[in-house]
Design a binder for these strands. Structure first.
Lengths: 189, 189
DNA sequence: GGGTGCATGTAATGGGTTACATGATTCT
DNA sequence: AGAATCATGTAACCCATTACATGCACCC
């Protein structure tokens, strides 16, 4: 009946909050699930077509003067049912590829300086991301304090915060260890 | 000249530690880079063929009685050069998909119990993974204390440890918050 | 006799990004 | 004049997993 994979279900989820067009969905992502999920137009439009064919969403074309038509999609009853069914299915864990760790793993074949640079860059990124998470959480709490979605959105932001803090701590430790190795190697010469 | 993407470079890295067959590489992964990188046979064999054609590795066929032939690959000089070049290239950050967070984000459309179950399962997995990281670090330190690769391998394991600890902390907080929400909803009825 | 391990490889399939194609309006 | 925004969609391509195909030896 429904497509496999999480993409169509992610779309159902976003449409369950509010009816939207494919374009809207793409615009919304960076301001909502963008920190842990992404979808491109090349996925969104075909998936919406498929969801419509499966009767999980309804399509309504809005005409505006001087603007392209908008195809606005909203959940049907079976769409809502399908979403609830998917939400309750267990999450199967998958290995997350991490290129930084891959390069660090082979660090003995490079200079300590190269490894330290990678770690430092990563640390900067994590600090910047952490600021965004914190600012977003504050903004959401102020703007829509009574939204029933709010607690859940804050939980996902909190996950990001914890992860960033841990990553920054690891970066500090690792940079120090790399310096130690560098000095130890210099002494031997 | 070389293929794109990290897969061939990951193979060069593994071969730089010691010459190996495609089969060996696959067997090695779970005991080395498996916690942050994976490659299947369907990637490994074609990539090795390509690397050979590019002159980055040498192939040597070993014959054994009563056993299939083994194609053992080792780095060439230009293979080592290519590895070092790739190691020094900056790591570009990519959004990591996280289905747990996706489901939690839409938690308002499900019951708190479902969300709590997801978080609890995740917590169990993280605790189990943490134990593995710690055990692996101890084992490596004992078995090859003088290996120049050791400090780098420990750094990647440490990353995993920090990440697990942070995840577990988040799980505890989040489970508590979900219970709080559940009780608050029950009071209103 | 049947499962497991060794060992190589290809084909089918699925998932995803990027580039391309179109076209009007509005802003600079 | 040219870029950006709105808006939809397809095609080409890349990356990755899984299933399939083969075949010998060893152990239970």
């Amino acid at each position: 009946m429904a497509q496999k994979g999480s993409t169509p279900n992610a779309l159902l989820g976003l449409l369950s909050i509010h009816p939207r067009s494919g374009y809207d969905i793409r615009q919304l992502i960076p301001r909502s699930i963008g920190h842990f999920w992404n979808e491109s137009y090349g996925q969104i439009y075909p998936a919406l077509k498929h969801l419509t064919a499966d009767g999980l969403v309804n399509k309504k074309t809005e005409r505006h003067k001087g603007r392209p038509d908008r195809n606005v999609y909203s959940l049907t009853a079976s769409g809502r049912k399908e979403l609830r069914h998917w939400l309750q299915l267990p999450v199967e864990p998958a290995v997350q590829r991490n290129e930084l760790l891959l390069k660090l793993f082979f660090g003995a074949h490079s200079t300590k300086g190269v490894s330290r640079k990678h770690v430092a860059t990563y640390e900067d990124q994590q600090r910047a991301t952490l600021k965004i998470y914190t600012a977003t959480a504050r903004k959401l709490t102020q703007e829509q304090p009574d939204d029933p979605h709010l607690p859940f959105w804050l939980m996902t932001l909190n996950f990001g915060r914890h992860r960033c803090v841990a990553a920054i701590k690891w970066c500090t430790e690792t940079r120090r260890e790399l310096e130690r190795l560098e000095n130890a190697a210099a002494l031997k010469t």
